[in-house]
Design a protein around this nucleic acid. Structure first.
Lengths: 143, 143
DNA sequence: CTGCATCCAGGCGGATACTG
DNA sequence: CAGTATCCGCCTGGATGCAG
């Protein structure tokens, strides 16, 4: 895989708000912030657009393996949030192009950092999981 | 709010796998990777532990406003993934302490970068939303 | 081609009650 | 205190059908 385009996929549940008054006000802020651009498909779309500059609806769809429904919903959200710009060409058949705004482009950097960590540490996590699972299975048998 | 402790909250849906063969193999990787440590509560817990070093079960619970259920589930996952270490003290009443492993600590940096972006651009996103919504409402009235 | 509307399964996540 | 188990609502997200 290419390392130039490193990325990640976050994804906050937009529907679930935090409890009203946790002792960690910062955490509320964090949730609020990333509820905007932190869902699964948003990040993937930004990634794709950052690599291809401009993509049409079905190009994105094929590229990501996303359903029309989620693509449509997510693109609308991204456009609303000012990360993606939508250009409609009144031709037949219709042609709509999506690309990143400046705000959207600025999002690539943090995404890359987090993606790099994720990729770098995937093996460690897998290893830790394997150990944990083995220990657990043994404990289950012994118990 | 404090800017020293900047953070974020990602959150991948663990249950939903991507389509089998999208044209973007990287994206599959990304999903796989962050499905491990990218969910909503995991990040919040890592953030809390990074600031307090060690926290007990109910301390985390109060701090984050998280339910016992999700805290229990998420901590177990984080321990399994090697990000969090659990120390059980056989006293009465029971006492369990959670803290970050080295792997967990390494996760703080990317989290901080993404959190910083989120905080820096929250205003811009809000602004874009407001514009979008106003335009939409006007269009609806005009339509 | 580019969507929107609907239906439906599955998972997230809170509330509650109960155990050690 | 530190969990586990159960119930249940809500949202995500795919599949399908239809419209412009």
């Amino acid at each position: 895989m290419k390392q130039e385009g490193t990325f990640l996929s976050l994804g906050i549940k937009k529907g679930t708000a935090m409890a009203e008054a946790p002792e960690c006000p910062d955490c509320q802020r964090i949730n609020e912030v990333l509820a905007r651009v932190g869902d699964r498909w948003s990040v993937l779309i930004v990634i794709s657009l950052s690599r291809y500059e401009t993509l049409r609806f079905n190009e994105l769809k094929r590229h990501l393996g996303i359903s029309q429904r989620m693509l449509s919903l997510t693109l609308k959200e991204l456009e609303r949030d000012g990360l993606v710009s939508r250009t409609y060409h009144a031709v037949i058949p219709p042609k709509v192009e999506y690309s990143l705004t400046e705000l959207g482009k600025s999002f690539r950097e943090p995404v890359k950092v987090l993606g790099k960590w994720a990729l770098d540490n995937l093996a460690a996590i897998d290893s830790a999981r394997a150990d944990y699972d083995i220990t657990n299975e043994l404990a289950a048998k012994a118990g």
